[in-house]
Simulated assay, not measured.
Amino acid sequence: MAIRLDFQTEKKQGSLLITEESESNKTDVIRGFFSLFGFEKEPMQTTVYSPEIVVHSQGKAEEIQKQVSEAINQRLQQLESRPSKDEVEIKKPELINSKRTLNPTIGEMIGGAPQQEAPPEEPEWYQTGIKNKEGVPHYKLRYWCKNPQCRDRSNDYIKEDQKTVKCRKCGQKLLVRQAADEHMKRDEWGNFFIADKLAP
């Protein structure tokens, strides 16, 4: 076992590391170390450092050496009595709401579990763009109202030969035109007709 001594005065400082096991050698070496600082056998104030051990003492070198040995032995016993990493059991906290029970939840007790409704079926005209009103086909139209106070945008369904359409919000008349280059063809948004100009 090694002993390390660090000593400092106003004028001098020094360190000593003893690795031999003989008690008489340790005492002689410690006395010689302190004699370099002008201390022979008189009491002195010093601090002794050993791995993770600090001992403050006032007295002779033999007393310091004895206290250091006792402190080292106590520290070794503490280290040996500590459980190893393999023996330490790590406990993780339980996750919130992770326990399963047979009891109903508060939501089930209040009004039952919420049931998911099936999404409503889309009407056929959403896909075809043709809505039959009283047996007459009406075709999808997209309009943009040009009234500066309105500027409404919406879809409507009109007859094939209809030339104008009214804005639903302000009643402004708009001219109807084909949405695609060919007659009765749909554009990329599924519109047959577009109304985006003011009617005279």
Rank of each mutant, 00 (worst) to 15 (best):
E117F: 04
Q45G: 00
E62A: 12
I158W: 01
I3Q: 02
W125M: 09
P104M: 08
D28R: 15
L76D: 10
G129I: 06
Y49T: 08
R31F: 03
Q78L: 13
T164C: 01
V68I: 15
L16D: 05
D6W: 00
L175Q: 12
E94Q: 11
Y157G: 02
P51W: 00
R142W: 11
K11C: 00
M109G: 00
P120C: 00
F37C: 07
I72L: 14
H183W: 10
Y126K: 14
L17F: 00
R100P: 00
Q8I: 10
E121I: 09
R142V: 08
D187Q: 06
L102Y: 08
E122F: 10
R168M: 07
M1L: 11
I64R: 02
Q116D: 12
E89V: 12
Y139L: 04
M1G: 12
M44R: 14
T27L: 15
V55C: 03
R151G: 08
S154I: 00
V29R: 11
E121H: 02
W144H: 13
Q65R: 11
E42I: 09
E122W: 05
P83S: 06
K92E: 15
M1I: 08
F37W: 07
D196I: 02
K91V: 13
G59A: 07
E122G: 02
T105R: 09
K140D: 01
R168H: 15
G129T: 06
P200I: 05
D161W: 06
E20S: 09
N155D: 13
Q8G: 06
V165A: 02
Y49K: 07
E23M: 10
A199Q: 05
N147I: 01
L36K: 10
A195S: 05
G14Q: 05
R153P: 00
E20G: 09
N191S: 04
L17E: 11
T101R: 08
A71E: 10
K26L: 14
N191G: 00
